[in-house]
Structure formats: C-alpha cells, structure tokens
C-alpha cells in the first residue's frame, strides 16, 4: 500500500510528510505536525503499482512492418496524426490517441490538440487594457493606442479565443469603442493643434 515511487503526500501548510500507507492516510484526521484538520480520500489508483514502460519488440520475420524511427523494432501502432508506424517505445498514448514524438511536439507547439493546451493569451483583455489605461494615465496617446487596439483586433480575430468568455463579441464591442476613442482622440488633437496655430 505504499505510495508509488519516492513521492509522499505532504501537508500543504507545514510541508510535513503524511503517513505513506493507505489505511493510515484514510484514518488521519489532522496533520501530524501542524494539527490542521485534514481529510484524505484515496482512490483505487493509489494502490496501483508503477508500471514499467513498454519495451519494443524486435523484428523476427522478413516483411514485417517496422517502426519509422527504429528499423529493427516491430511496428506496434500507426501515429494518429502522420500515419507513420511506431514501435511500442515511440508510441505516445494520449487519451486513447497514439502520437509519435514529433507529432506530439508539433501539437504542443501549435496547440492543435486541446488536451495538450496549457494556456492561451487573452487578447481581449490586452485590447481592453490598451483602450482603458491611456484614458486615465496618458490621454494624449489615445488616438495611437486606439488605432493599435484596432490593428490588434484585426490581427487576433482568428486567434484561438478564451474557453470561458466570448472573445469575438468582446472584440466587436472593443472595435466600436476603439473607433469612438480614435475619433474623439483625433478631434482633441485637431482642436489643440488648431488653437496653437
């Protein structure tokens, strides 16, 4: 019932290690070091031993399909992205889908697989700041920043939006605001320059 590998559950408050055995953990009502009330719920995966990585099988017969990356390894599965044959060593399983290392790296770089996506830039928030901040701190720059906001909206229109907010609707609202700011700011400049002449 020991924790797999060298990892142990630790108290989030004091960092003290919790007991390593399952029954002790489940019976624990408080941290043994800082006495904070603590509840631990264990699941069957807690007791699963660490499984050794897959080993590739060697080619034994002529004419057998082989791994694209290892000519002497027997093909195990094709890559779901590029279709290349992979041995058990090169096969990277992602929620039932199989990828070769190259395709997985590409998917991580280009964010083509949602399960691998770890973050997105909220361009709507950047644009909002670009519209709002100069109004309070440097209003003379408003025509420039509103124009920059409009350009940014155009550039990021097709960029992946937020998963929780409607980025497109925000873009439309901000485009209207940016246009108003640009017209207002330009009028202000025109008035200032007109008076100085």
């Amino acid at each position: 019932m020991a924790l797999p590998g060298n990892s142990k559950l630790a108290c989030p408050n004091c960092g003290a290690s919790f007991p390593s055995s399952g029954p002790e953990l489940q019976a624990m009502e408080q941290c043994p070091a800082c006495w904070r009330p603590t509840e631990v719920t264990l699941f069957p995966a807690f007791d699963w031993p660490v499984t050794a990585g897959a080993t590739a099988e060697k080619v034994v017969m002529d004419g057998e399909a082989t791994c694209f990356y290892h000519a002497d390894h027997r093909a195990h599965v094709p890559c779901d992205a590029c279709g290349r044959f992979l041995c058990a060593l090169c096969d990277l399983d992602l929620n039932g889908r199989h990828f070769c290392p190259q395709c997985l790296e590409l998917a991580m770089t280009k964010n083509t697989v949602q399960a691998l996506e770890r973050n997105r830039t909220r361009w709507d928030k950047v644009i909002f700041a670009l519209l709002l901040v100069p109004l309070f701190f440097c209003y003379i720059l408003v025509p420039v920043t509103s124009l920059a906001a409009l350009v940014l909206i155009g550039m990021k229109w097709k960029a992946p939006g937020s998963l929780v907010s409607n980025t497109r609707v925000r873009f439309i609202v901000f485009a209207v605001l940016a246009t108003l700011e640009f017209v207002g700011g330009s009028f202000m400049w025109w008035m200032v320059l007109g008076r100085s002449r």
Binding site: R36, T38, F43
Partner: peptide, 8 residues
Amino acid sequence: IQAMVIQS
C-alpha cells in the same frame, strides 16, 4: 487521480 486532500 490517486487521492484528494481537503485541509482546513
């Protein structure tokens, strides 16, 4: 998920 911990 192996475990979930709730600490006050």
